[in-house]
Design a protein around this nucleic acid. Structure first.
Lengths: 255, 255
DNA sequence: TCGATGTTATTGTCATACTATTGCGCCTGT
DNA sequence: ACAGGCGCAATAGTATGACAATAACATCGA
């Protein structure tokens, strides 16, 4: 393995940097990512038994401490389950915690397929529609003002990254305004979806698309401000499916 | 701490047993649950620094290996973050992965408040409504037949546990029928919600409530069978909010 | 044939030592 | 008096080697 000085960081970097996180760079995390990717990619299939600790130790060239902590982390995310004498088994996909930021990142690292992006858009629709409706019913004036401000920022953004930051902030604010802690907990999901979408095609360079995107977000903000939960639902659905359509359409074209 | 022979298993047992899981009973898991509960309960507040490893070692009387693996597990679930020289900090709640089965279990272990149950019902509505609609659009005949069969089982269930099992299976099937892996991933959420609801008040002992609950599930199954996504949405919303209302109403009465 | 039993491979736990990181205070030079 | 660098020390990170617990499997016995 790559144990020399210039160890290359996994490319989740660009996603992490956009989200402002500062993931620690340590051995444990390297092993974690390599194993996580291997599992998500199907290199270790569901139900399969991983090589025993001793083999993995050779493969990664780390201490048992590091390896075991990486395995425990994977277990915590529902990807594997270790049992004495049996070995460490890859759990079926429906046990994986897809709402985990790392697990999601591994999926994206492999180049997300359209079907996966669609699934992501579908859950986002489910959750964020409800969040928008709740926000409309409960939101305080300050928050709806902040939402409006966010839309203005989106309108004048000059780079895709800048636009994405405000877009993400917008959705985060809606989740917060819903007053429901679960809604806020899916920001990782939104982050990935937006980053992926904008990596594929950002509306910043296309005045028409930009107008549409900003417009639909404005509709959400105004509906929340006016306490119109029905309108908020519709607008949020449009915002998400429109974003997905743009990315999916672009992927089609490239193929 | 309780290091004597008869160490009492955390009471997540009854939930785990209902769901058919077989959680390993090892030291790591004991420490994990104790720390997890302490954090979720606010005994260690958000932003606070946990005692250093050395103190925790004394407190739990385990080896450093075990303690660190427990901490790594908590970190994987987004509850804490460790940094050299700083210590191990409890992350703000919005970083916690509330869709994790353990984290949820810790919340329930503390006796869930009505507000928490409401939040749970709200996300379930968002996600499962969409799952039901997708199932209606995509579902194969076998699956809708299985759904109907599930409803029949609910109707003739004799114990609360039996009823809950079929109810859970019903929602799992809907998620599966949606063809969306994220939907299936929230079964932990549903499990907790149902278990909590039935622990508080099961419709089995109340013929009227039983009829209502079975009826609304039948409406879902039939809508999916008929490919009527709109009806599926409405019925699923009714099923979840009705379940919540029953539990919440019962809690009110008790107070 | 089947059931009890020992063997052994694999994960689980322990103890200790050393390394890397980084906040904080000291110390220096201006 | 102040700014900036420099090292101390506290804390998590890593390494190593040993032993304990678990459970599939082969082996033996009835």
């Amino acid at each position: 393995m790559d144990r020399s000085g210039g160890r290359a960081r996994h490319s989740g970097d660009l996603i992490a940097s956009l989200s402002g996180r500062n993931p620690a760079r340590n051995l444990h995390s390297d092993v974690l990512w390599e194993l996580g990717l291997a599992i998500v990619s199907g290199q270790f299939a569901e139900g399969e038994i991983l090589p025993p600790d001793s083999d993995l130790l050779d493969r990664f060239g780390v201490s048992r401490t590091v390896l075991r902590e990486a395995l425990k982390t994977l277990a915590a995310k529902g990807l594997i389950e270790a049992r004495a004498r049996i070995g460490t088994r890859v759990l079926p996909r429906n046990r994986w915690n897809l709402f985990d930021a790392d697990v999601l990142a591994w999926f994206f690292e492999l180049g997300p397929e359209v079907g996966f992006l669609r699934s992501l858009a579908e859950v986002r629709i489910g959750i964020e529609i409800e969040a928008a409706a709740l926000a409309a019913e409960r939101s305080a004036p300050e928050l709806s003002a902040a939402l409006i401000a966010c839309v203005e920022q989106m309108a004048i953004a000059e780079t895709p990254a800048e636009f994405a930051r405000h877009d993400l902030e917008f959705h985060r604010l809606v989740a917060e305004a819903s007053g429901n802690p679960f809604m806020a907990s899916i920001s990782a999901l939104v982050e990935m979806a937006l980053t992926a979408a904008f990596t594929i095609s950002s509306p910043v360079n296309d005045p028409v698309a930009l107008g549409v995107t900003v417009g639909v977000h404005r509709r959400i903000a105004e509906a929340i401000r006016d306490g119109d939960s029905h309108a908020a639902r519709l607008a949020m659905r449009d915002a998400i499916s429109q974003g997905f359509d743009r990315a999916a359409g672009r992927m089609e074209k490239d193929v």
